[in-house]
Computed example of a mutant assay.
Amino acid sequence: MQRVSRRLQPHRIVSDQPATTDTEQSAASPVLAIGVEEDQNHLFSHGMIVVSVWEHFSNIFGVNYLSSQSVLQRFNLWISKASKKIRVSRLVGLVPSVISWEIWLSRNQARFEGRAMSASKIISKVAQWLHDIACTILGEDRNSLADSITLQLINIPKAECHLPRNHSIVTWLKPLRGFLKLNVDGSSRGNPGLSGGRGVCRDHHGNLIFAFHRNYGLTLNTIAEAQAMLNGITSYSKLGLRSIIVESDSLTIAKAAADRYDFVPWNIWYKIGTIREFRRSLNLSFSHIFREGNSVADALTRLASEGNPNNFFVSKYALPVKVQGALLLDQAGLRNLQCT
């Protein structure tokens, strides 16, 4: 019954430490009692430590701060202030994602490494992220006076900013109701080298249906990508469901599976052929996603390629902590920056 209850509460996450109201958490003190569930709004929005972080950057960027806002409301407010026409406003849309990521890292370091969690440390980390991003996407010679003042407030000297590189925002999107989405990834260390693949299947709320990672031994990257897709679709077919969207960060594999290539390399021909056969019994669609939007799959692929045992997960609480974090940020609509 407890397990079922947790699956019906996607807004909660498991933590082993009791909540604290101190502005700085002692490395020695526990944060949640074992078995207690921590509300994600407390963790990312309402806790005293994170309130100080949000207030700090809200004042700098002129975004209205309301203490009662949920995580989703706060994300939507910041994103609504973003604009491609005003240079620093491009940065505004990325701020909540950076803040949430650093809060999550700081929370895990406090929990698993005994490091103190404090607002000042998180603010410093976020400022460094924004410094690096701003110097990539903002050109110093085109900044207005207001832009320049804002950049100085987060310690970004004009002399360090360079002309912008090509960049785009990449976001993992939840599937429509009635569909599931399967994200797959494969990798090979050395190409050929020690290889692995993984996949994660989620519903229209972003909730986990299943995830897996497997070792493939010594092989090529393309073979690992194709095998990961085949493993994921095979696992999905056993659920008795029919409609699924399959995303891969390998453009070659995504196009080959969708039958958009006349020629398929011989070393993945059988795997691609088997994947296409599933289209006779399943409502399958295939698409390409950039690696920045495939972060959950990428995290599990590293486990597989590093020689960890094969595993299959049906509960998000069984996933490694870093993978849980990536899953949670996808659910919150994390916007990722891709630079080329």
Rank of each mutant, 00 (worst) to 15 (best):
K255G: 00
T274F: 13
K255C: 10
R242P: 01
L239W: 15
A257E: 04
R291I: 01
E277L: 10
T252P: 00
R260I: 07
F263S: 13
S237F: 12
V296Q: 02
F263M: 09
G293P: 04
D249A: 09
I244D: 11
F286D: 00
N267Y: 00
N267C: 06
A254Y: 06
T252W: 07
S250M: 02
R279F: 08
W266T: 06
I289P: 01
S250G: 01
S235Q: 14
W269T: 01
I233N: 14
F290V: 04
A254H: 05
V264T: 04
N283H: 14
G273A: 12
S235C: 12
I233R: 12
I253E: 02
G293D: 00
L282I: 02
F263H: 03
D298G: 10
S281K: 07
Y270M: 14
S287L: 11
R291D: 04
N267V: 01
A297S: 15
I233Y: 10
R260K: 14
L284I: 06
K255Q: 15
N294E: 05
L282N: 03
R242S: 15
I233E: 15
A256R: 03
L284P: 07
S281T: 13
T252Y: 04
F263E: 11
D249C: 06
R276C: 05
D249F: 05
P265M: 03
Y236H: 01
L284W: 03
R280D: 04
N283M: 12
S281I: 08
S235M: 12
K271F: 08
Y261R: 14
V246W: 08
T274H: 07
R279H: 15
S237A: 15
V296W: 03
F278E: 02
A256K: 06
R280N: 05
G273V: 13
S285G: 03
K255D: 13
G273N: 11
I244P: 05
L239E: 10
Y261N: 14
N294W: 12
E247I: 02
I244M: 07
D249N: 12
S250Q: 02
D249Q: 01
L282K: 07
F286L: 03
I272E: 04
S243D: 14
I289D: 00
F263Q: 06
T252K: 07
L241A: 13
L251F: 01
N231T: 15
E277R: 10
L282G: 02
R276S: 02
A256N: 03
F263L: 08
S243R: 14
S285D: 13
G240F: 04
D262A: 06
Y270H: 10
I253H: 08
N231Q: 14
A257I: 08
L251Q: 11
R260T: 03
K255L: 11
S250P: 10
K238I: 11
S285N: 12
R280K: 12
Y236G: 01
S235V: 08
E292L: 11
P265F: 03
V246C: 13
K255I: 05
N267M: 00
E292R: 10
I253K: 00
R279W: 08
I268A: 00
L284Q: 08
V246F: 10
